[in-house]
């Protein structure tokens, strides 16, 4: 494999669409900033999901029509959004009661690294001159029922993001249930990374070569793990 292959497999949109298929109808979902936000665009029409944004809105809708937004109606990424019929506003303590209290069904997050035991690093590279900033990531992974990670399989430099153990500062211990990359869908199991599905353009060996820990093929009983 060469570094130019690092974008092989599914596109970002295809990754988001693949993940969207797996979310049960009626789920309360928190989507992180970046690729996770794309998931909302690919939810099949026969499903209704209810989106939570931790700054104080459940029932979040898409971006407003240009010129009709309100600077005080924003999402966790501080972009203007809308409120769907049935939405509710609340303060931060209640918002994190929803998160920490296990009321949100699914959170989709990006990652710097995911370890084979489900440890997640996604808030800091630990570089000495970086300004540390964590937001709600640690609360989300500690409290939401299922955590899906959506990420490129490797870094821009071709280094594995799926690893034996994280070298970056952790966001949470053993919190990830399933990973969607450009190359594969992978569950975290007690035995490690278990491949659920491969992108059509790659084979198992390709994916293993770009993964920092052993992969297993899917077993018959495997389903997305629940914490």
């Amino acid at each position: 494999m060469t570094s130019k292959d690092s974008k092989a497999g599914w596109s970002r949109e295809e990754m988001a669409a693949r993940l969207a298929q797996d979310i049960p109808n009626g789920s309360y979902v928190n989507l992180g900033i970046g690729i996770p936000e794309l998931v909302a665009k690919f939810v099949p029409e026969d499903k209704t999901l209810i989106y939570h944004t931790e700054n104080g809105l459940i029932g979040m809708g898409p971006s407003p029509v240009a010129g009709q937004g309100d600077p005080e109606l924003i999402n966790a990424g501080k972009r203007q959004v809308t409120a769907m019929p049935g939405a509710a506003y609340f303060h931060h303590a209640d918002s994190f009661v929803m998160i920490r209290g296990g009321h949100i069904d699914l959170c989709v997050l990006g990652a710097l690294q995911v370890a084979q035991n489900g440890d997640l690093a996604n808030w800091s590279t630990g570089e000495p001159d970086a300004i540390p900033a964590v937001g709600g990531a640690m609360d989300l992974v500690a409290g939401v029922k299922s955590i899906y990670v959506i990420t490129q399989h490797t870094t821009k430099h071709g280094e594995p993001k799926l690893v034996e153990s994280c070298t970056y500062p952790l966001t949470g211990l053993g919190v990830v249930n399933r990973i969607y990359t450009n190359l594969a869908v992978i569950d975290i199991t007690p035995e490690g990374f278990q491949v659920v599905e491969l992108s059509p353009s790659v084979d198992f060996k390709d994916v293993q070569e770009r993964t920092g820990a052993p992969l297993f093929t899917k077993r018959e009983s495997a389903t997305a793990g629940k914490k």
Binding site: E54, A93, F96, P132, V134, M138
Partner: peptide, 11 residues
Amino acid sequence: LVPQGTLAERI
């Protein structure tokens, strides 16, 4: 630096 939900609950 305080996680956002921990900050809210501390307050």
